[in-house]
C-alpha cells in the first residue's frame, strides 16, 4: 500500500492544492469546449448539423478551446512543480517513486496540453486532434484526482 498523504499544512502544500483546483477547473472548461467542438465537427461531417442563425461556430469553438488551454498550461505547470517540491520536502526524493502514478498522470496531462500549443504554433495543427488531446489531458488530471481520493 502507498503512504497516506501528509497533511497540507505548509504554504507549498496550500499553493499546490489551490493551483490544482484552479487547473482542474480550467481543464474541465477546456474539455467541455473540446467535447462540443468534436460533437459539432462530427455532425457537420455526417451532414446532421442543422444550421441556426446566431448559433455556435466551429472556428469560434476552436479559438475558445485554444485560449482555455493557453490559460490552463501555466497553471498545470506550477501545480506539478509545487506538488513535486511538497513531496520532496515532506518525504525526500524517494517519496516521488512511491507516487509514480500521480507523477506519470500529471506528466502525461502536461505533455498533452503543451503539445496542443506547440503543434498549433509549429505545424498549425488544430481542430479534432487538438480537441482529442485536451480530452486525454483532462482524463489524466481526473485520474490524478481519483488517485488522491483513494489515498486520502
Amino acid at each position: 500500500m502507498h503512504d497516506p498523504l501528509p497533511a497540507p499544512t505548509s504554504a507549498l502544500a496550500k499553493a499546490h492544492i489551490g493551483l490544482a483546483t484552479a487547473g482542474l477547473g480550467g481543464f474541465t472548461i477546456a474539455a467541455g469546449i473540446a467535447a462540443l467542438y468534436l460533437t459539432m465537427d462530427r455532425r457537420l461531417r455526417l451532414k446532421r448539423w442543422k444550421p441556426q442563425p446566431g448559433g455556435l461556430s466551429l472556428t469560434g469553438l476552436e479559438r475558445l478551446h485554444y485560449h482555455a488551454v493557453m490559460l490552463v498550461v501555466p497553471v498545470l505547470t506550477l501545480t506539478i512543480v509545487t506538488g513535486v517540491l511538497w513531496t520532496v520536502k515532506s518525504g525526500g526524493v524517494a517519496a516521488i517513486g512511491g507516487r509514480w502514478i500521480e507523477v506519470v498522470m500529471a506528466a502525461a496531462a502536461w505533455l498533452c496540453s503543451a503539445a496542443i500549443l506547440v503543434m498549433r504554433a509549429a505545424l498549425g495543427v488544430r481542430g479534432r486532434k487538438s480537441a482529442l488531446l485536451t480530452l486525454a489531458a483532462f482524463a489524466c488530471t481526473l485520474l490524478v484526482l481519483v488517485w488522491y481520493g483513494v489515498r486520502a
Binding site: M40, L44, K50, P51, S57, G60
Partner: peptide, 19 residues
C-alpha cells in the same frame, strides 16, 4: 426558421463553420 434555398443553406452552413 431554417433556410429555404440551396444557396441560403450553404451560407448558413458556412456561418456554422466560420462564424
Amino acid at each position: 426558421r431554417g433556410a429555404a434555398s440551396v444557396p441560403s443553406v450553404a451560407v448558413d452552413l458556412a456561418r456554422s463553420i466560420f462564424g
